[in-house]
């Protein structure tokens, strides 16, 4: 059973329908790319998965989203652990208003991990045992370092961990956001046009990270850049005007689209 599957999901803001009866299973341990023109409900679909939509006014959601078999929109669902399972990268990176170090440590601290849990988490991540430094917060230090390394940021920031995260460049901020999301041990990563605010080099770094991470995580990326979708996608979902037009493995999707609209979009006739 896949981690994430959508079942007849319809979403509207007030009277405005944004998504119309979308049903799809998102394959595990692959990069799933959601493409489509702007304003067709890509971001809404993504944010419906971890219920960030709750922050908007008068949103109504019909149908359901199953995360590990649990319906997200069940009133009894545990939203907090659900969100913990799904890491999130926003369009523009938003570092939390604290230091670089605290940005990573924030998640584990909020979830009140014990020393043993932190050590266990690092072991799981690094796949080896290690020595916990004999100082206050020693384990947390190692944890922060591990995740910064994982996001390819460690060498750039190791000397200024205590400086405000807002002083990093945008590209670095996005990698920090990735590290921060990974530090709460999610099973999947949801990314909403994660490279749209970045320069080409930083964007490339993020794409590389995704390809590296896909072995262990289910990754869902929203993008409106077709070339990016071709570069990174294992599986593609095409939304058009709130409707799920077509979905399938990347290769067949791009080579032999079944729907006329997909073909038109891929060839650049509609955008």
């Amino acid at each position: 059973m896949p981690h994430i599957s959508l079942n007849n999901l319809s979403i509207s803001y007030g009277n405005h329908k944004v998504l119309h009866e979308v049903s799809v299973d998102i394959p595990d341990s692959q990069i799933t790319v959601i493409i489509g023109p702007s304003g067709c409900g890509k971001t809404t679909l993504l944010k419906s998965l971890n219920r960030l939509l709750d922050l908007n006014d008068d949103v109504s959601v019909k149908g359901n989203v199953l995360i590990d078999g649990v319906n997200t929109y069940d009133p009894k669902a545990d939203v907090l652990s659900l969100r913990k399972k799904l890491g999130f990268l926003s369009q523009r990176p938003y570092p939390l208003p604290m230091s670089i170090y605290d940005n990573i440590a924030f998640g584990p601290k909020v979830h009140r991990l014990t020393q043993e849990q932190i050590v266990q988490q690092i072991r799981d991540l690094e796949g080896r045992s290690f020595q916990v430094p004999e100082r206050k917060n020693g384990a947390m230090d190692v944890l922060v370092e591990s995740y910064l390394r994982l996001a390819g940021l460690w060498d750039e920031v190791k000397d200024r961990l205590r400086t405000p995260a807002s002083r990093l460049s945008i590209g670095q901020q996005q990698r920090l956001a990735l590290a921060r999301a990974l530090a709460v041990e999610p099973e999947a990563i949801l990314a909403d046009e994660p490279t749209s605010a970045l320069d080409p080099l930083s964007a490339q770094l993020i794409e590389k990270q995704f390809k590296f991470l896909r072995n262990n995580y289910t990754i869902v990326v929203v993008t409106h850049i077709l070339r990016q979708a071709r570069r990174i996608a294992d599986y593609v979902i095409f939304l058009y005007l709130g409707e799920l037009v077509e979905h399938g493995p990347a290769e067949s999707f791009f080579k032999s689209p079944k729907d006329e609209r997909t073909r038109a979009y891929i060839s650049g006739e509609i955008s």
Binding site: L55, R83, S90, Y94, R180, V184
Partner: peptide, 20 residues
Amino acid sequence: ELKEVSYALGTTRIETTMAV
């Protein structure tokens, strides 16, 4: 969006309010 990234880590309302 800033609140969203905090909530996405699985924080409660008061945790996001106090920390962010």
